[in-house]
Nucleic acid binder design. Structure first.
Lengths: 321, 321
DNA sequence: CTGAAAGCGCTTACAG
DNA sequence: CTGAAAGCGCTTACAG
């Protein structure tokens, strides 16, 4: 066990009350005593236990919001986080980003023990077991960029986004159209893809091909090149901007007249002239932060209110790519 | 005061031990009792006090590192944070980002009470009073991107960076050279500027003008335009990339043959083709995270070791701008 | 100026 | 299955 205030008291020959006063810099302590105590504290490597201190002094920090990310967080999430941060900062809340670690089970046990008032869960669903852990501790949470009808969630309309992408390519007179996705199943991709296919259908078009890969610019460049060479492709829709960058590069290199559209509209994308489906990361971050703070502050209400359910609209951004 | 386990116990007619078992989902509780207790807990709006729980159960989370940002955090810091996050995540630590708020004094009092093991202070110095607060609680900290010989600090060599910028412009045959800075004093800017002037001197050049402005692309665009028109300028060094973007735009618009160089090398800058002085944000973040974890884990050592003092080198990136 | 004691809100054997 | 009690490491009046 770590060294406690009691150890310091015994070792220095004073009472724990006095030690406490010294450590906290209260007045009314003889200079000599102070020095002695400080010295033994240092010698023993004493470090006050903040938990105990908080409990004893009745200071309960309720002003920390936790967030948990998917195991592979891509850039879009960092833009969301920056929105969350601004808003929380505005409201005087701290932001606690949990390590997601390798072992989900243990991590969740760990999270549940930490001191925070509400949790923002980014981009992916929790297991029932995990939700149970949170609920057992009466911890409120909101899904961000993930939709669950049973739970609080603020999300984007991915179906619509997919449809917008389809209409973009259709309007640019593309006939042979492909989709390049991520090799990880996700709600976002499923819906985006479904919307995309429907959108194509409505225009009387049909998807030619779909390939799922890692998020890696080189990989995306290679695959795009391959696809362009093998088939007579007019347009490609990428699951996200980060994938599309490689495509953009392939397009330029090969000088092919092909249409490329991404998804997210990361900050960088505007500089690159990439057409894309814009999801306002900052806004959803701010919105999520606002809502979790509200939820946390409304503690009292024991009523089972309807879960929060907010859908944000993506927008087509045509940069001519 | 909030409702406690005692309140629930009394209201439900059971002992606090039983309530505790129910809340924590332990077995050996009659189903009927469980339901009753859960109901009154809900009715009363009971929320377990995590602090008390931690203390009682002997669980002391030592795996959280705090960070505090400057009041106006610009993008460079977010790139540092992403480095910090990766490394901490690797090590199983959480990241607690403190709100910096408006009132520095209160904020620091508040921070000192939070539960974290070590602090990373980004980009600016703490007041003596603030350091005192930390030290009184035996809280270790490291400055990141700020240099203080008396304290642990990991930082970039801004003098050298300034010098590199000077040599860049000199080699591109610029003779009339200006500096556009930020209208806030900072160690970084002071050193960068000094290095820059020295660098110019060595090449037999002299600074023509210096203007300090807000970080705002429009503003920077306007000022650059003005400077180009008024004086016969061949090269401009901007305090940071974010300022340089406006300059880049002005240069393109006016079609003037002028050299532009920024500082930081934000991710975006490579896409924009901006020449700049690269500081590896991710690296310093990772480095800082590693070091603070080491420091925190070496708790025991009561010896007064030398403060950590690490200097990282910036690098010139010539993208022809 | 200093010590003894109560108390912060929980958990956890120990009896029953 | 449940209650009473000790204890987690501190703070804070209250005496002295």
């Amino acid at each position: 066990m770590a060294v406690t205030i009691k150890d310091v008291a015994e070792a220095s020959g004073f009472g724990i009350g006095t030690v406490s006063r010294v450590i906290n810099g209260k007045e009314y302590v003889k200079e000599e005593t102070r020095e002695k105590i400080l010295l033994t504290a240092k010698r023993l490597g004493y470090r006050p236990n903040k938990i105990a201190k908080m409990l004893a002094s009745g200071y309960f920090s309720d002003s920390t919001i936790g967030i948990i990310l998917p195991e592979i967080a891509h850039r879009f999430f960092f833009e969301i986080i920056s929105g969350i941060y601004s808003e929380l900062n505005e409201q005087g809340y701290n932001l606690l980003i949990f390590n997601i670690g390798k072992n989900r089970e243990q991590v969740f046990e760990h999270i549940a023990r930490e001191n925070f008032s509400g949790l923002l869960v980014l981009g992916y669903p929790m297991a029932e077991r995990e939700k149970k852990i949170l609920r057992a501790r009466f911890t409120r949470f909101i899904y961000l960029d993930y939709m669950d009808r049973e739970e609080n969630s603020i999300f984007f309309d991915n179906q619509k986004g997919g449809r917008l992408a389809a209409s973009y390519l259709a309007e640019k007179d593309c006939r042979n159209i492909c989709f390049i996705g991520r090799n990880i199943d996700s709600q976002q991709q499923a819906e985006r893809f479904e919307g995309f296919c429907r959108g194509l259908n409505e225009k009387g078009l049909k998807l030619k091909d779909r390939i799922d890969i890692e998020i890696d610019e080189e990989e995306s460049y290679r695959v795009t090149e391959e696809i362009i060479k093998k088939r007579d492709v007019h347009g490609i829709f990428y699951f996200c901007d980060e994938l599309a960058y490689g495509g953009l590069r392939a397009k330029e290199k090969l000088g092919k007249d092909i249409r490329i559209i991404g998804y997210d509209d990361l900050i960088i994308s505007s500089f690159m002239g990439l057409s894309t489906i814009r999801q306002d990361a900052r806004s959803i971050g701010i919105r999520g932060a606002k809502k979790i703070v509200e939820l946390v502050q409304s503690k009292g209400s024991s009523e089972e209110e309807h879960p929060l359910f907010e859908c944000m609209e993506p927008v087509l951004v045509d940069r001519g790519s």
